[in-house]
Computed example of a mutant assay.
Amino acid sequence: MGSLSLWIGLSHGLCNLLLPEREGVVPVISSLLASSPRERERASKFDRSSIQLLSEKKKKTKKKNREPKCCPLYQKGVCLLKFGPILFSPNTSGELSSYQHTKYHKQTKNQWARDDPAFIVICCLLLAVSTLAYCAAYDHSVSHAVFVIIAVLVFHFLLVGVVLATCCWFLTNNYLREEAPNSHVVEQRVEWLYAFDVHCNSFFPMFVMLYVIHYFLSPLLVAHGFIPVLLSNLIFMVAVSYYHYLNFLGYDVLPFLERTTFFLYPIGIFIILSPILILGGFNPTRYFMNMYFSQRL
């Protein structure tokens, strides 16, 4: 009897190793090898537990294989794809919307803000490269060029972004939130990280206009005359207005905020100021170039 039990155990182990996917083979072989009713009952219980373990293992393996494998390169590629909708389709509905990903974050991770800093890192790299190009064209000192690059990254992008995000975060949570209809509704608030994400999204089109397009047009814009003054003011007005428009879209997508058109008011201010600056002969390109770079224009 002992040798028969040992033989049943060995046959069961070999079948599990050789035929892991054929769950019905092990009970048949074990039942054929077991001669007495007691042995058959013991083999049947053992086989049922083995079949259950194998089926659970198969389910876990299939679930693990279905899960997407995200590598850092994949995440950077997805992040780069977000720059296009911000520039060309910020207000469209569907998956191409620049703020459609915020709804996905809320549904999947219960937060409005991005949890991946790749967007900010790429913006900083692009900003550093463009500032380096300006320094190569309009600066003569390496140490001063390094200072300008650090100042643009820290002051123009990060520090100004922190201040603006904090102001918008405070304003939306204290004055623009809808009142809950009853006490049973979960109170929602704007996250500070989401406010900074909105600043980063809004900054990118302004970066394209004032650091890329402006760079190639700078030989014309720094010249004297009415045409350079007109073009320079128009580029700055469009860039700043587009920044505030995207800022409005970022908060308008949140369902618990109201009166978000408040973020469009600065556009009207810049539209009114631009003709005054043009008639006054103020050239913002020459002003900022002389302020940041050693070469006087």
Rank of each mutant, 00 (worst) to 15 (best):
F88L: 01
K76C: 15
K103E: 08
S143T: 06
D139V: 13
A137G: 12
L125Y: 10
K106H: 08
C168R: 07
K82R: 06
V146E: 15
V163S: 05
L153S: 08
I86D: 00
A118E: 15
F119N: 06
T108C: 12
T108K: 12
C123M: 11
V154M: 03
W169K: 06
N173L: 00
S143Y: 05
A180L: 06
W169Q: 07
S97P: 01
I150S: 05
V129K: 08
A151C: 04
P72Q: 05
D116W: 05
L126Y: 08
V146S: 14
I86Y: 02
K69F: 00
Q100Y: 08
G77N: 03
W169I: 02
H144L: 07
L132N: 14
P117A: 01
E179N: 01
V142S: 13
N110S: 10
E95I: 07
P90S: 00
C168K: 10
C79G: 06
V146N: 15
D116Y: 05
P85D: 00
K64L: 02
C123Y: 10
I149E: 03
V78Y: 13
T92V: 06
H101L: 09
L171H: 11
Q100V: 07
C79W: 11
R66M: 01
T172Q: 03
L164I: 05
L125A: 10
F155M: 09
N174D: 11
